[in-house]
Design a protein around this nucleic acid. Structure first.
Lengths: 185, 185
DNA sequence: AAAAATATGTAGACCGGTCTATTCAGAAAT
DNA sequence: ATTTCTGAATAGACCGGTCTACATATTTTT
């Protein structure tokens, strides 16, 4: 794959991720993806012969890696578990507010939409969440109940993000940030 | 509206709620609603002249009232906040597992799908969440930080439900149940 | 090195099917 | 008898996906 091809492919994934994050699987209509990315329809099926499902699946996994990396970075520059959790919530709040309440969790919507099925997309979402859980668990290692705690922290963050999106306000994220110390402290 | 009319209307709302819960807004195609409810097409637009948006909006609000009521019931038969929270998680886990991972939160998917917009549906979701927050707050009254705590508990429950759906397993709900006592105890 | 051949990527018209929406004559209920 | 409710038909936008034609690299042959 040449340079131009790789760029087009990336642009398609970028556009898909943004659209998915804002409106879920059906929110990423191929026409919208094409319009947002500037890539022609033919290129889409050249780079993603598996069609929309492949496009969305790769996009979800890619976003999972990106956010996983961001988590690691935040963890490295925090001096305690509580501080880390608060930094994550603050970071997500900024991102959400700046995007006009569009950029929440790039996985959540698709995960809910596909939960009732067994298709590859559902699996992709599950794996991304599992990877984040593992990242949190590693940071909580040694602590009793580290496994339960990692899942609990992730649930709390995802839930806060959901409420913040629903209310179009960062208030839920701020409130949770004020209480999360009790959990991980 | 006669007796039969009311029944048809209810059947339409029931079917819509189930479909939304399983697959979000686009998962509730009007053809599917009609098929699932057994109601004729004409009736849909007779009872809901506002079309799909009205149907989904009323369905979300109705589900919000139903679950709000269930919350009150569970709270009445619990002897502590922690016990109450655990009962809620257990209840949701049962419901989710029995439905084959289809029945999670009837609001969450629509809330995420419409978060980027300002339409009436988004408002309906926000109001339902606000009503649940208020119900929790009332049960936590007197306690310091009751406001923050109510939002935090709701976020935790919604997040656990999201992860459980994503993994098609009640495990996240069980894990959170084991840790939620730390928060509300 | 020039020419030919092949692989890679772009471009958009086009397809059948499904979607929501709407109409309206007339059956059913009160 | 009048309101309430139904069922079938239709419309047109939109969907994901396929197709063919074209442009641009890259490699192979001479």
């Amino acid at each position: 794959m040449g340079l131009k091809g790789a760029e087009t492919r990336d642009r398609l994934l970028d556009a898909t991720q943004e659209l998915i994050e804002a409106g879920g699987y059906p929110g990423a209509g191929l026409n919208q993806v094409i319009a947002a990315s500037g890539a022609p329809r033919g290129s889409l099926y050249f780079h993603f012969p598996g069609g929309k499902d492949q496009l969305v699946g790769e996009s979800v996994r890619r976003a999972g890696r990106a956010i996983g990396g961001a988590l690691e970075d935040l963890a490295d520059s925090a001096s305690s578990a509580a501080e880390f959790a608060e930094a994550v919530l603050r970071h997500l709040g900024d991102r959400l507010e700046e995007s006009g309440w569009r950029k929440g969790c790039p996985v959540a919507t698709v995960a809910l939409e596909t939960a009732g099925t067994n298709d590859p997309l559902q699996e992709a979402c599950s794996e991304v969440y599992a990877s984040w859980e593992a990242a949190l668990r590693a940071r909580l290692a040694g602590r009793p109940d580290a496994d339960d705690l990692a899942v609990t922290v992730l649930a709390l963050v995802e839930g806060a993000l959901l409420l913040a999106r629903a209310h179009r306000s960062r208030d839920p994220l701020d409130r949770v940030a004020r209480r999360i110390g009790v959990l991980v402290g």
